[in-house]
Simulated assay, not measured.
Amino acid sequence: MSDVSTPARVAIVTGGSGGIGRAVVERLAADGIAVVVHYSSNEAKAQEAVRAVVAAGGRATASGGDVADPDAMEALFRHATDAFGGVDVVVHTAGIMPLAPIAQMDLDTFDRIQRTNVRGTFIVSKLAAQQVRTGGAIINFSTSITRLQPPTYGPYAASKGAVEAMTLILARELRGRDITVNAVAPGPTATPLFLNGKTEQAISTIAAANPMERLGTPQDIAEAVAFLAGPARWVNGQVLFTNGGAA
């Protein structure tokens, strides 16, 4: 936990109501960071995460909104400041992953992926760049799919390639601010987003292909986020592939 003599740091975690986001919320709270749990539509799950943090002795609150809506995200950042006094860490886990071969994906789905994953990252990163305090950290989410490049992931991988580019450029644009900007790129991780639509055989095959012979867990990814949010002050402008050696 953080030293009681120092003001508590404050984090916003987008997509914090479930999966990797929920694990990140609980891991940052364990380090003494007050957490704003963002949700898109499932307020009940976000409030469940808040209750878990509070029950463990931490501080948390929930706030909803579409990450691709600038007004909603401005309200999210205001909520963090009103509740806890400011923002030190922004972890942007929110994203969507519809899959289809490029030849078969309709443009509406493609546009929805880019709207959430690219526009959403841009909006959250812009606000974070304006509001994160000195000594803070901005952590976006990419994916190891940008290296693995399997079929059906084309539009999703394209969106995360854009996320990586924005992340690395923003790190350079924040010169002199003492704010780190990095991206975490998980490999196959046992979350509902990843497991949805896959057979048990497919999941077992993917797990066996990893040198660690398992899927990642949300907690594995949360440890990498905690590292970048806290002690990793000399890691900046990087993409941290967190995948057990899969790529």
Score class of each variant (00 low, 15 high):
Arg147Gly: 04
Asn182Cys: 10
Ala72Gln: 10
Asp178Gln: 13
Val53Gly: 07
Gly120Met: 07
Gly21Met: 06
Ala60Pro: 03
Met212Tyr: 13
Gly15Arg: 02
Leu148Ser: 12
Ile203Phe: 03
Ile20Asp: 05
Pro186Ala: 02
Phe194Asp: 08
Val90Glu: 03
Val239Glu: 08
Ala229Met: 08
Ala185Phe: 09
Glu173Pro: 02
Gly65Val: 03
Pro218Ser: 08
Asp220Leu: 05
Val90Pro: 00
His38Lys: 02
Pro150Thr: 14
Gly120Glu: 03
Ala94Thr: 02
Ala46Thr: 02
Gly120His: 09
Val4Trp: 11
Val4Pro: 15
Val181Asn: 01
Ala162Glu: 06
Thr61Cys: 11
Ser125Tyr: 14
Thr81Gln: 13
Ile12Met: 00
Gln238Gly: 05
Ile139Glu: 03
Leu107Ala: 12
Arg233Thr: 15
Pro7Arg: 10
Ser5Lys: 12
Ser17Glu: 11
Gly64Pro: 02
Met166Val: 04
Ser63Asn: 12
Ile179Met: 08
Asn196Leu: 12
Ser204His: 11
Ile12Gln: 01
Lys198Leu: 15
Ala129Tyr: 09
Asn140Lys: 03
Ile179Gly: 03
Leu168Ala: 05
Arg175Pro: 05
Pro231Thr: 14
Phe77Glu: 05
Ser40Thr: 10
Met212Gln: 15
Ile33Lys: 02
Ala183Ile: 09
Ala46Asp: 00
Ala103Arg: 13
Ala208Gln: 14
Ala55Glu: 15
Ala229Glu: 07
Gln130Asp: 15
Gly15Ser: 09
Ile139His: 01
Ala190Tyr: 03
Leu107Thr: 11
Thr14Val: 03
Leu148Pro: 00
Ala68Gly: 10
Gly19Phe: 04
Gly65Leu: 06
Asn117Val: 07
Ser159Glu: 07
Ser204Asp: 15
Val91Lys: 02
Asn236Met: 10
Pro7Ala: 07
Glu213Cys: 13
Thr6Leu: 14
Pro231Glu: 13
Gly244Pro: 04
Arg9Val: 07
Pro70Ile: 09
Arg51His: 15
Ile206Cys: 06
Ala247Asp: 14
Gln238Leu: 09
Ala247Gly: 15
Glu200Leu: 12
Gln114Pro: 01
Arg27Ala: 15
Asp82Met: 08
Val54Phe: 00
Thr152Gly: 01
Val53Ala: 00
Val124Ser: 05
Ser204Thr: 14
Gln219Ile: 13
Ser63Thr: 11
Gly136Thr: 06
Ala100Arg: 06
Gln104Leu: 13
Val13His: 04
Gly187Ile: 05
Asn243Phe: 10
Thr143Glu: 00
Glu173Gln: 12
Arg177Trp: 06
Ala183Cys: 13
Arg27Gly: 05
Ala209Thr: 12
Leu168Gly: 05
Ile145Pro: 00
Ala224Pro: 07
Met73Pro: 00
Asp69Asn: 14
Thr189Trp: 03
Leu215Glu: 09
Phe241Glu: 09
Gly21Arg: 02
Val163Pro: 08
Leu170Glu: 08
Gly16Asp: 07
Gly21Asp: 06
Ala44Ile: 06
His92Phe: 10
Arg112Phe: 07
Ala30Phe: 03
Ser63Pro: 03
Gly32Asp: 03
Thr167Ala: 04
Val10Lys: 05
Ser5Phe: 14
Ala46Ile: 04
Ile169Phe: 11
Pro101Cys: 02
Thr217Lys: 10
His38Asp: 01
Gly86Asp: 06
Ala246Ser: 14
Gly58Arg: 05
Gly64Tyr: 04
Gly16Tyr: 06
Ala207Gly: 07
Ala129Asp: 06
Glu74Thr: 13
